[in-house]
Amino acid sequence: MTAADPLARLRALCLALPEVTEKLSHGEPTWFVRRTFVMYADHHHDDRLAFWCAAPPGVQEELVAADPSRFFRPPYVGGRGWLGVYLDIEAPDWAEIGEIVTDAYRQVAPKKQLARLDGASSG
């Protein structure tokens, strides 16, 4: 994995979470913990590289309003509050992206996996 490979970095963040699996969905790598929580987004071929993810209530609106050069309302799932995060920007903040991915996981993971995540975080 190189610093310039955003898919590899995103994959590593997602797969580090308890019981996450990766499958292709709509032709793109997608990460699941029973349900989808992150989807790589290069399939619209609009010259933008991004990912879409579940987000806590209000976060999409807050981040898009604060920095539309980094965040967007994704098609199809944006109406459900999902967040779009551009990866093709100069110097993505991977620590922040890690927090966003973890928050997405928390939106869909069953309680058992959340307990494992919280146990790993505090131990």
Rank of each mutant, 00 (worst) to 15 (best):
86 Y>C: 08
58 G>Y: 09
24 L>P: 14
121 S>T: 13
24 L>Y: 09
49 L>Q: 07
74 P>G: 10
36 T>H: 07
15 L>N: 10
36 T>K: 08
49 L>Y: 08
48 R>Q: 07
114 L>V: 14
7 L>E: 01
2 T>M: 11
98 G>T: 10
60 Q>C: 03
99 E>L: 12
78 G>D: 03
25 S>F: 03
32 F>A: 07
59 V>P: 15
122 S>T: 14
39 M>T: 10
13 L>W: 01
68 P>N: 09
35 R>T: 11
48 R>A: 03
75 P>W: 02
77 V>S: 02
33 V>L: 05
54 A>D: 10
73 R>Q: 03
97 I>E: 03
38 V>P: 02
68 P>W: 13
74 P>L: 11
74 P>T: 14
33 V>A: 07
72 F>V: 12
110 P>Q: 05
90 E>P: 12
110 P>E: 13
22 E>R: 01
119 G>F: 13
123 G>M: 15
58 G>Q: 01
41 A>H: 09
26 H>A: 08
46 D>F: 00
120 A>R: 15
52 W>E: 08
20 V>I: 06
46 D>Y: 01
98 G>Q: 01
58 G>T: 10
69 S>K: 06
86 Y>T: 07
31 W>G: 05
74 P>S: 12
98 G>M: 07
25 S>L: 05
29 P>V: 02
16 A>W: 13
50 A>F: 08
104 A>P: 04
36 T>I: 13
30 T>F: 12
96 E>R: 10
20 V>S: 03
43 H>V: 14
52 W>G: 08
22 E>T: 09
97 I>R: 02
1 M>Y: 15
73 R>M: 04
95 A>P: 11
12 A>W: 06
32 F>L: 02
47 D>P: 05
120 A>H: 12
87 L>D: 09
120 A>T: 14
97 I>T: 05
112 K>D: 15
71 F>E: 01
39 M>G: 08
61 E>G: 04
1 M>N: 11
47 D>A: 09
20 V>E: 00
36 T>P: 06
5 D>G: 07
107 Q>D: 15
88 D>H: 11
26 H>I: 10
108 V>P: 02
5 D>A: 11
56 P>K: 11
10 L>V: 06
3 A>Y: 07
1 M>V: 14
82 W>P: 02
123 G>P: 13
119 G>I: 15
76 Y>K: 11
51 F>R: 00
77 V>P: 04
106 R>A: 06
123 G>A: 14
99 E>Y: 10
22 E>F: 02
44 H>W: 12
69 S>H: 05
25 S>M: 08
102 T>C: 05
110 P>F: 10
18 P>H: 01
61 E>P: 13
101 V>K: 06
83 L>N: 00
37 F>M: 04
92 P>T: 15
1 M>E: 15
80 R>L: 09
15 L>V: 11
114 L>Y: 10
60 Q>E: 02
82 W>M: 04
46 D>T: 05
32 F>Y: 10
19 E>Y: 06
12 A>Q: 12
95 A>K: 04
60 Q>V: 04
